[in-house]
Write a protein that binds this DNA or RNA. Sequence first.
DNA 1: TCACTAGACAGGAATGATTCCTACATAGCA
DNA 2: TGCTATGTAGGAATCATTCCTGTCTAGTGA
Lengths: 150, 150
Amino acid sequence: MKLDSQEIEARFRRHAVRVTRQRAAIYAALAETTSHPTAEDLYRTVKREHPMMSRNTVYYTLGVLRQAGLVQEVNVGHEVARFDGNVTVHHHLICLGCGQIVDVMDDGLNHLAIPSRQARGFHVLGHRVEFHGYCADCQQAGLGAMERRG
Amino acid sequence: MKLDSQEIEARFRRHAVRVTRQRAAIYAALAETTSHPTAEDLYRTVKREHPMMSRNTVYYTLGVLRQAGLVQEVNVGHEVARFDGNVTVHHHLICLGCGQIVDVMDDGLNHLAIPSRQARGFHVLGHRVEFHGYCADCQQAGLGAMERRG
DNA sequence: TCACTAGACAGGAATGATTCCTACATAGCA
DNA sequence: TGCTATGTAGGAATCATTCCTGTCTAGTGA
């Protein structure tokens, strides 16, 4: 979803995040896509408009935005960290072929519980569901027939 | 669960994994614990009995065992990879305070589905549920009251 | 039992995402 | 408008993991 700079500024202020051009650019790039980009992806995207942008600033900013709750980190397997501007409760569907991540919103999935016998005194705050499979393109390319790799 | 070397050998052969002392030691160490150790943890454990063991061999062996389906990799957030000798379908409960991972077995959790409207042509092979919270000890230590960190 | 060979092992070097360090720049307040 | 806490750029450092290479050995066939 494309956000104008006023909306970005408002969100930053609401979350007590200092407004800078770099931060706005990084957040805008993330809010604009549903593709769960990596820090490196965002760096490359933002660098077009801000050639002086440091890779470090992207990491630092993502850390700030994440702590502020404006951004979510998504980790698939042991791969590079990916980021998600959608901070509502949702789950993910991951293609084992091409690595694409699709958001899954479903109220049913938001209300799972652990059998209390197994909760062992844990105070559970939330959960996340990750579906794995092959997207239509990868199935067509024959990847879907491959053994699942771990 | 403590396994004797015959059982380990049998499992390796069943999965067409070459039997070596190093592999047996690594797999035994993993099967013996429910604590989801890291490669480094396993390296240190196994090195006691096998001082010549290379860290490289631990990584290589874990890769082999994982591909053979004898071992599972568990990734929490963007932290170091952890391993699980339990390869039956199960889920995890993770303490945000101390990082401990507890296995959750529940048939209900094994039968989740994506609303077909959102499945987008994906061929879904499986899913995993990760619960987050604070264990009893961390709650007592006051960590449970802390803001959730990402 | 023996020799062969594909695959495994050890150890060290390389990789690469991420974090740390530091000097300079700037947002936001007084 | 000036001050100061905080952010930024750029380079160095970190460290889990992978790659490389020269030995070694499990498992097979004779």
